[in-house]
Computed example of a mutant assay.
Amino acid sequence: MLNLKQIKAISLDLDDTLWPIWPTIDRAEQVLHEWLASNAPLTAAMYASPQALREIRDAVGRERPDLAHDMTALRRESIRLALSNAGEDPQLAGAAFEVFFAERHNVSFYPDALPALEFLAARYPLVSISNGNADVSRLEVAPLFVASVSALKVGVSKPDPRIFRVAAEAVGVQPHEVLHVGDDAVLDVLGARDAGMQAVWINREQKPWPHTEKRHPEYADLSELVAALLSA
């Protein structure tokens, strides 16, 4: 059960909590490939499939652990490497990444997400917490958030408790006064708990709780969370 008397702010994960991430990435990679076909055809031919682009990104991730918290730099460096491998100008990587990044923010919200965010924002300050490079300021929901926290800014990723504590500080409350909402049992729920927050698991796929630790309140979507808050 949630202790609603303690809650003074709400933090939210972004990818797979407010929108499905892989359809978004699929579209962004397709737009990137189309741009490469027009501006760097040798690279487009060498990396003709989304899987090929992901493989080179994963390879860069293994070779550059220093970029683990910077998805933007990781993606840009993987494009630069692809261009170099194809014998084309690596300086095109910046423009190519911007094409990808713009489409990466062309998200399709879950049907329950926008009404839930409007409900929550009218009652609590909202702060986003993301391991990825989604930028709330580039989204239509930007006015609903008072702050955003990312692994890039903090230097650590969820489930490290420090990123959750930074989020609490960003909205001027203590961790135990924050309710964190996210889809990942480890990164979101256990991470927030270890930081001293309350947490709820948005389990859209009705997965079984995968851990021995005590489970937390679970909802199939954000509308169920709103209903629970209204009825409490």
Rank of each mutant, 00 (worst) to 15 (best):
G182E: 02
L42W: 03
D160Q: 05
A185L: 01
L2A: 06
V173W: 04
N39G: 08
L222R: 04
I7S: 08
A185C: 04
A168V: 04
E34W: 01
V226F: 01
K214N: 09
S150Y: 06
A45I: 05
P65C: 11
A9H: 08
L179F: 08
A28H: 06
F145N: 03
A227Q: 13
R62V: 11
R54F: 14
L36G: 00
A151Q: 03
V31P: 00
P50F: 08
R123V: 09
Q30H: 14
L14T: 09
K158L: 13
V186Y: 01
V149M: 01
A195N: 07
G94A: 12
A113V: 02
F101M: 13
H180L: 06
S11E: 04
M71Q: 13
I202H: 06
A121C: 11
M1Y: 00
H176F: 10
E218N: 12
L36W: 02
V181P: 00
D89M: 09
E55C: 07
V178S: 08
L190R: 13
A122F: 04
R27L: 15
S157C: 10
S78T: 14
H105F: 11
A122G: 12
L144E: 05
P175S: 06
L18C: 09
R215Y: 04
Y219V: 03
H69A: 14
A96M: 05
A68W: 03
V127E: 04
I21G: 00
I25G: 04
P159G: 07
R193A: 14
V146G: 15
L152V: 13
L190E: 12
D13T: 11
A121D: 03
S108I: 14
S223V: 02
P159K: 06
F145H: 06
L74H: 04
P210W: 10
P217I: 11
H216C: 10
V60T: 12
I129T: 03
A52N: 06
L179D: 01
R138A: 15
D70F: 09
A122N: 11
S148W: 01
I79T: 06
S84V: 02
P50K: 10
V149I: 15
S157P: 01
P23N: 10
S137L: 07
G191T: 10
T17K: 00
R76C: 12
V31I: 12
V178W: 04
A96E: 08
V171E: 03
L144D: 07
D160N: 15
T212L: 12
I129V: 15
F164R: 02
V146D: 05
R123H: 14
W19T: 11
G87D: 08
L179I: 14
H105A: 11
A220I: 13
R104S: 07
D194Q: 14
E205K: 14
